[in-house]
Computed example of a mutant assay.
Amino acid sequence: MNWLLVIAGAVVGAPLRYLTDRAVQAGHDSVFPWGTFVVNVTGSLVLGLLTGAVSAGAAGPHLQLLIGTGLCGALTTYSTFSYETLRLTEAGAGLYAAANVVASLVAGLAAAFAGVALAGALTT
């Protein structure tokens, strides 16, 4: 029955990803894929927070399946990040493509570390 938890999380994560991407991108007049960037960094923060909570014993495996695998799995998107970076490169926007790669990697890792640290601070 664990798969039901994954599906339930994905049912929320997929439309949340789409709606967030559209809302964020509509607010920016730029070729930079801000919507994908925001959902990926947000997902990294949530997953870091959840991982820290699970490590501290404040959350269990069912929540990890629901939020981590289901919601974050559907919310974040490596394939769209890759495609948008490729599209930027093909359009001659190499600087934006490089910025997307570097900013996504740095911000995503920072968000994950921040989530783990926040969970640690909240559970002690």
Results as ranks from 00 to 15, higher is better:
G9Q: 06
A58K: 14
V11D: 01
L19P: 10
T42V: 10
R17A: 13
A98Q: 07
L65M: 11
G52H: 05
V106M: 10
T80S: 08
L5T: 11
T123K: 02
T69W: 07
L50Y: 10
A103S: 15
G68D: 04
A111V: 06
L86Q: 11
G115H: 01
V46S: 07
V106A: 13
A114C: 10
A107T: 13
L19V: 14
L86I: 10
G60Y: 07
G92T: 01
V101H: 09
R17D: 05
A103Q: 05
A98K: 07
A112C: 12
L16I: 03
G13P: 12
S44K: 08
C72I: 08
V54F: 02
A26R: 15
A93K: 13
G35T: 00
Y78P: 07
Y18S: 03
A93I: 01
A59M: 12
A99M: 13
G57E: 01
L95S: 15
A112K: 00
A112L: 15
G60P: 09
L4R: 12
S55A: 14
G13H: 03
A107H: 05
A98L: 15
S55M: 06
L19S: 11
N40W: 06
A114R: 07
V11H: 04
V31W: 05
L16V: 15
V106Q: 03
H28V: 09
L86T: 12
V12T: 09
V38Y: 01
G48T: 02
W34D: 00
H28S: 02
L95V: 14
T77D: 13
E84N: 03
E84S: 06
H62D: 13
G52P: 09
L71C: 01
A93S: 11
S30W: 09
V38T: 12
E84F: 06
S30M: 00
L75W: 08
T36S: 05
L109I: 09
L19N: 04
A8M: 09
N40D: 07
A53P: 09
L95M: 03
L71T: 03
A121H: 13
L47K: 04
R17V: 13
A107D: 06
G35R: 01
A59E: 05
D21L: 04
V6R: 10
L88V: 03
G9H: 05
L71P: 03
A98D: 01
A8Y: 03
A14R: 14
L19D: 00
F81G: 00
L50F: 11
T42C: 08
L49K: 01
L16D: 03
M1W: 05
G43N: 04
T123E: 13
A14G: 10
V46M: 07
S104Y: 11
W3E: 11
G60F: 07
G35F: 04
S104N: 14
A53R: 11
A93G: 02
T123V: 10
A10Q: 00
V106R: 02
G120D: 06
Y18V: 15
S104Q: 12
T77H: 09
G68Y: 03
V38W: 13
L19C: 07
P33S: 00
G115R: 02
F37M: 11
